[in-house]
Amino acid sequence: MTVYSKIIGTGSYLPARRVGNDELAAELAAKGIETSDEWIVSRSGISARHYAAAGQNSSDLAVEAAHRALAMAGKSPAEIDMVIVASSTPDFQGSFPSTACIVQQKLGMLNGSAAFDVQAVCSGFVYALATADAFIKSGMHRTVLVIGAEVFSRILNFEDRTTCVLFGDGAGAVVLTASQEPGILASKLHADGTHADILSIPPNPAGSPASGGFLHMDGQAVFKLAVTVLEEVAVEVLAAAQMQACDVDWLIPHQANIRIMKSTAKKLGLPIERMVVTVHEHGNTSAASIPLALDLAVRDGRIKAGDNILMEGVGGGFTWGAILARM
């Protein structure tokens, strides 16, 4: 009997503090940095983002999203036999334990389930979901909690208006379980380390790991590469599933820039109305962006049982990937 992995629950969480463009522009102006709502929206499509409170870490956001995903799935923490957290902003920057282990502890999971982090930046959730799918299909695990969680506000240089206006904090989660019904139909993952320098956190002057460093991004280089690889990997994953773009009910791309997202939809021949968009309200939440958008569309009724969902992301590394899933 063929074993599939299927998403049976979704959840998300955004920190309470919502920061609109006008508020952010005023804060930056106090530092002598000029920007405006029009400038930010015209370049990214972003109108607002959420920031975590002091002392609120990625694991805290992850736990809130996990509780909601578990509730939808009708599962208790004790029924989860693996936790995978995708994050570029772990609780312990450049160190350990993994955020997944902290989430496991905060959820009260005392069953000895496996727990580990995945680092693929904005592609992290796609990488984590593909990993969970492989573990379930192999028979090694049955029910996996997959989370993307970020507090990017902690690694932003608020004197660099080209990056600090783009990112926000949040978490999204799914419960993936073994099923006789097709769920994850295909996945494709890629990386090209020759582009490592276009999106990174350079070591601080002392040469230590990411701790204390700020995000650096070559926006034009990222844009150019993203629009190319997102189309290519979408075509690749559709071919692997023996499907065509017209079979896709909903496209959920990484929520980084509305221009990249619209370009991807256009190249695939998908109407904008079939793309889930949250970037205007969430900003770029890195590994959290796809599961945040997925949960929103599931809960507002757009995504229904049986729908085919194409999820794809690009991130520092340079990494990219796509997953085609049937809900």
Rank of each mutant, 00 (worst) to 15 (best):
E281T: 10
H282I: 15
D295W: 13
L294E: 11
P271F: 03
R302L: 05
V277L: 05
K266M: 06
E273R: 12
G306P: 00
G283R: 03
N284Y: 01
E281R: 12
P291E: 15
L294N: 08
A288G: 08
M311A: 10
R299L: 02
A297L: 03
L296R: 07
G269H: 06
D295G: 14
P291D: 11
S286H: 15
V279H: 03
A288Q: 01
H280M: 12
N284T: 14
L292A: 12
I290R: 09
L310P: 09
N284H: 06
D295P: 15
P271M: 14
G269W: 11
V277R: 01
E273A: 13
I272P: 15
G283H: 02
D307Y: 04
V279L: 13
T285P: 07
I272S: 15
L270D: 00
L292Y: 15
M311F: 11
T285W: 03
T278N: 07
R302E: 01
V277D: 05
A305W: 10
L294R: 08
T285K: 07
A287H: 08
G269K: 04
K304S: 11
A297T: 06
P271T: 03
K267F: 00
L296V: 09
K304R: 13
E273I: 00
P271E: 11
V277S: 02
M275V: 02
E281V: 14
A305M: 12
A287G: 04
A288C: 04
D307S: 07
L296S: 13
G306E: 03
S286Q: 13
N284E: 08
I309F: 14
R299H: 01
E281C: 15
V279R: 00
A293K: 06
L296N: 14
D295T: 10
E273K: 14
R274Y: 04
H282C: 13
R274K: 10
L268N: 06
R302G: 05
S289L: 10
A297G: 06
I309L: 15
A305P: 15
S289K: 11
E281Q: 13
R302Y: 02
D307P: 01
D300V: 01
G301C: 09
I303S: 00
L294Q: 04
V277Y: 10
K304Y: 03
E281N: 14
K304N: 08
K267Q: 03
H282G: 11
M275E: 04
H280G: 12
V276D: 04
S286T: 07
A297F: 11
L310M: 06
A305V: 10
N308D: 11
A287K: 08
N308V: 09
I290P: 09
S289E: 08
I309H: 11
A288V: 15
E273N: 12
E273Y: 07
I290M: 04
S286D: 09
G306R: 01
V279W: 07
P291W: 07
T278R: 04
P291N: 14
G301L: 04
A305T: 13
L292W: 08
L270H: 02
D295I: 13
K267G: 01
I303A: 00
N284C: 07
S289I: 14
A287S: 12
L268P: 02
V298C: 03
P271I: 03
I309W: 13
A293P: 12
L270Y: 01
E281L: 08
L294T: 03
N284A: 08
I290C: 06
K267R: 10
